[in-house]
């Protein structure tokens, strides 16, 4: 379901490939991102530009991949719309994830801190 692109600075851009990241597809999302991390990706931007809704299962999957990458690399998120931002705030995920306005801002920041 996910779409991946390798950018400069060895950064992997992941887009969930679904408008809603919920219990119906969260496991698939987590499994596919985990495969990418296991394959060597250690600088990952997950872009939610095209995601309109995220439930607790989607959030749990996101936490799961953050834990998977752990101290081996960086995982940040970008492009949260206002609804997804609200979910992040309610669940205090804005304190867990580094969030950028868009992919460009995320990539620029990651490149600076390489």
């Amino acid at each position: 379901m996910i779409h991946t692109t390798t950018l400069d600075e060895n950064i992997t851009l992941v887009r969930p490939g679904a408008e809603r990241l919920t219990a119906a597809n969260a496991k698939m999302f987590k499994d596919e991102v985990t495969d990418i991390i296991n394959g060597g990706a250690n600088r990952v931007v997950i872009d939610f530009k095209n995601v309109t809704f995220l439930d607790s299962s989607g959030l749990g999957a996101l936490v799961g991949v953050l834990k998977k990458i752990g101290h081996r690399g960086d995982l940040v998120v970008s492009g949260l719309n206002s609804d997804v931002q609200q979910m992040f705030r309610i669940c205090r995920m804005d304190r867990v994830f580094v969030v950028y306005k868009d992919v460009d801002a995320a990539v620029q920041s990651m490149a600076e801190y390489q």
Binding site: G60, V63, G64
Partner: peptide, 12 residues
């Protein structure tokens, strides 16, 4: 929610 471990993958 405040009692849920922020790094928990479920329970919210």
């Amino acid at each position: 929610l405040p009692a849920v471990d922020p790094m928990a993958e479920s329970g919210r």
